[in-house]
Design a binder for these strands. Sequence first.
DNA 1: GAATCGTCAATTGTCTGACATTTGATCTTC
DNA 2: GAAGATCAAATGTCAGACAATTGACGATTC
Lengths: 239, 239
Amino acid sequence: MKNTPDLSAQIAKSIRDAIVSGDLPVDERLPSEAELSEQFNVCRSTVREALKRLAAQSLIRTQRGATGGAFVNHLTFEDAYGQQITTSALLLSMNTVDFDTACEARFALERACAPLSAKRRSADHLATMRAEITRQAQPGLSDESFCASDVAFHRALVDGAGNPVLSYQLAGAVEAIEPLMNMITFTARSRTHIVGLHTAIADALEAQNASDVDTLLADLAGYTAALGKSVADAKKPAT
Amino acid sequence: MKNTPDLSAQIAKSIRDAIVSGDLPVDERLPSEAELSEQFNVCRSTVREALKRLAAQSLIRTQRGATGGAFVNHLTFEDAYGQQITTSALLLSMNTVDFDTACEARFALERACAPLSAKRRSADHLATMRAEITRQAQPGLSDESFCASDVAFHRALVDGAGNPVLSYQLAGAVEAIEPLMNMITFTARSRTHIVGLHTAIADALEAQNASDVDTLLADLAGYTAALGKSVADAKKPAT
DNA sequence: GAATCGTCAATTGTCTGACATTTGATCTTC
DNA sequence: GAAGATCAAATGTCAGACAATTGACGATTC
């Protein structure tokens, strides 16, 4: 039960700490692999494994050529979105988080940014939401496309809050649930109901009526949970 | 402007897709490095770099020895916390986000889970909060320790909601702000005020009074923002 | 003088082969 | 049957080489 991590993990941690602490500023060039291997007294391939670990976390980027090397990466929200969403999706799929819990979290977070969105939403956000509502009302739409459009609608709502941190945090919560939602078959009746709620939400946001938005989101949360429950019930009795 | 990613990145993506899609189930053993290098027609070190990338994302774990190898990792909430927090902290520290935005996001999310926490908080959560409040009232406490205790207090509040997805999502928002908060010097007067609000919040949670909790959190949010503003103002005029 | 082209050197990416280390499985011995 | 010795498979590390890329620098040409 030796608990000594690999050399490449130690080196990665050493460099990562330097980056996170701000010791290595953004766009700073790290020493070349050859220099690092001398500094840490290991061979180059070990250094490379450490660097690949950091690259996988978007902490550094590498560039070939004479003036190339490894540079401290400027972490963008886009970079972070991807990791956040895959991690969240994996967490949900691997941890048998039930539909109720995931939905509860999602709508709790969404209601948190609803007041801000009611205050700040731009015409652009409203237009996106209206467009998605129109798509959701089309009859031939597959369940997967309906869910994707649902996610896009809610993303627009969240983005309307104009707070990139909120958008980033909620990207995981909203998008990670898509696979779970895809397991639900949306009947024509349920789609109509959801589209109705979406329209009402868009109307309330346009009117900047925060309390109405909150009430409607609560309705939608309850309805979604009920849908999920009915699907679960339909599966259970088969045993 | 060749846009072909490295071989190790391609291989990592290939395996990652297989894991995320569920094609490789949890605890499944991957082929050995030698076998993978044959399958992908690359040398072993290239395969190893790919595996290290996946290990950095906690997607696989490796084990040495005869029955060892790379196994698809069961991603736990604990594992995800770490990545989430470092990523969020980096996003904030890279100056793309100002203190106001971060605080707004943090308290918006926190208020989202306050009603749930008021309903479900256990005696254990309350005890943790009381203990942190006691610590925060101690006179000799450093600013860093005060902030750390503040984070622990709010973590207990969030955990009280009893929803692991919420806890996971908010871990980033709450803990990532700690470095920013550490830049604030807390006077004795501001500490007293904050401890007072914390006590009132704990009282309201104990009484399961959700609306009071919400009001108090709003107060705390406003006060924290004001503190941050005063610090920023104190710095600006120096130029 | 300016633009174009070639060369060069530094750096990362990949390959090959070897050895060290770990660890469960298996065999041996009592 | 239990304890220890041995083995084999796998990852971890090392050493050295070559390929590929790319900016810098100089040479050539108009």
